[in-house]
Design a binder for these strands. Structure first.
Lengths: 305, 305
DNA sequence: CTCCCTCATAAACTCACCTTATGCCCCCAT
DNA sequence: ATGGGGGCATAAGGTGAGTTTATGAGGGAG
């Protein structure tokens, strides 16, 4: 369990420039001059010059070509800048989420969302919403589907997002997207090299790494297999399930949303399945008669294909 | 063009904890105690305590429940930790790429890759490779397909990755994955609401935001349309094309790899197309008779589905 | 009851980063 | 030719965040 993503190379922070430096690099790429980039970030030109220089020293690569006419990225600099952009985008998602989490009850828009949606989708939506309505304060409350429903009925949230199967009474809903559970294993597992799809009975008779009973993910799987899922491990967070699967503990069943990066990096491999309905809808929900208006309506519009 | 990802909220770095703090938070989540997390990162327990505390102050949310038996994440803390993990993973990719970029000629494995692959796929592969062969030093050279071929033939690289259509002489190859070009627009564009797929003639008769002539992306599009692609803008980097499309300048044609996040966050919308072959293969290439052995063979194995 | 592990607090030190104040270089316009 | 302005680099000084060491308080297990 200690051999996964967080495997303590102990010093990532010393080998990767800090966020401010990466932002500065992006600004230089965008504006074409150290001085303009500095002004853009509200620091002085010598500070920018020094920061870029120490980043180049740290990485051991020249990033920008300085000239009396301005500064342009080197080839290596362009590549580094693109990698840096990924970090900064993740940081923007973090920031959007964190602001909503801190948001007080007097926010213009009170959102309640299930963990999976809050984790993987909502930050992106909030960034898009901020692009359209920069002055909207959003507050976020994350919990399981039952908690979301409760908040809505108590009028403590204007708009909710859930992934369960159930259609609660007293609420209206709209399907906004589809999700699918998939079976994944570490690349070394025998199933990783399977060509023939797994059957429902095979899946039901194999011990799996699963979320705990009561979670949306588990509900869907149990329903699909007729309540027969046999747990090898029962863990209470998507992340813990992923970590176990990556470390080779066994096959796991998870939302497609949760494993995109792991599949791309081949830390996990998807195993084909047949004869099992693992699709599920993601729904927006609100109190009957209180269809969201204003910013809520905008957010809802963003989430629909 | 200034209204995109890098839109200078000027202070992201002041609102997002720095990488060291995020790593610390992940360690606390993993190890269940501030002290153990501190030891894991090679700092003292008071330093960890203080850092977590200032992070909580910065975010305005309690992240961990302290008890004499240890520390566990709060609900909000679990969410924040998951968002933080995304940043740290992007930083790990950055680090893996940067190390390879700095790598000297005496590295055990010399890789040459096209920009798109170096940008989006290679860092993940390098992380996976490091997991299997921790002591392998990799050097990376990124350029267009022609440069990759040149390096291989001059024996300045052991293994290359290209996305072009061509099959160069003197080299052997293996298809490792498939990529697809897609048409994207900002959500406000009329095409974003189309249901009927675009025809080849429609695509060819509409001015598009494109990569420059000579790029792999442009080659594939020109071939698919019979050399008729009409540029609205010609830009020399994938990033610039994306930024223009996001800001609503017009429809763009880009690799699927490049726009995953933008599609997920609805900054861009994919437009269906019919009767146009926009698929392309991603290939590993090496000098005839010099099929990679050792670490190169491992990397090759990683990249194949 | 005692030992150990947990976390918090206080005081002193370090050092990375910023600002201010320069200087040099180049291009352009007068 | 000759300022003026934009570009970057360097030097010197200040400030603050993060670190360590030292210590104390609380709870659980043997």
């Amino acid at each position: 369990m200690r051999e996964d993503v967080g495997h303590s190379v102990a010093g990532l922070a010393h080998r990767v420039p800090e966020l401010g430096a990466l932002e500065l690099l992006l600004a230089v790429a965008r504006l074409g001059s150290l001085g303009r980039a500095a002004r853009d970030l509200g620091i002085t030109q010598p500070a920018a010059s020094s920061r870029i220089r120490s980043m180049e020293r740290q990485l051991g690569v020249a990033l920008v070509d300085r000239s009396p006419a301005g500064s342009r990225l080197t080839d290596a600099g362009a590549l580094v800048t693109d990698w840096a952009r990924r970090i900064v985008e993740a940081a923007e998602a973090f920031d959007a989420g964190a602001q909503a989490l801190r948001g007080r009850r007097d926010s213009r828009l009170r959102v309640a969302a299930s963990m999976t949606i809050a984790e993987y989708l909502l930050p992106g939506w909030l960034i898009a919403l901020r692009g359209r309505r920069p002055d909207t304060a959003v507050s976020l409350l994350a919990g399981n589907s039952a908690a979301v429903v409760e908040r809505l009925l108590a009028d403590e949230a204007d708009l909710g997002f859930v992934e369960g199967l159930s259609v609660p009474a007293g609420l209206e809903e709209a399907v906004i997207a589809h999700d699918r559970l998939i079976v994944v294993t570490a690349p070394g597992h025998p199933w990783a090299r399977r060509r023939r799809p797994l059957s429902a009975t095979e899946l039901a008779s194999t011990p799996l790494i699963l979320r705990e009973e009561g979670s949306g993910t588990r509900q869907v799987l149990d329903a699909a297999l007729g309540g027969l899922a046999r747990p090898l491990l029962e863990l209470s967070s998507t992340t813990a399930v992923k970590a176990s699967a990556v470390s080779g503990a066994g096959p796991a069943v998870l939302s497609e949303l949760a494993v995109g990066e792991e599949l791309a990096a081949r830390r996990l491999v998807s195993v084909p399945v047949e004869d099992v309905r693992l699709d599920r809808d993601l729904r927006a929900v609100w109190r009957t008669g209180h269809r969201p208006a204003g910013p809520g309506r905008d957010l809802l519009a963003l989430t629909r294909g």
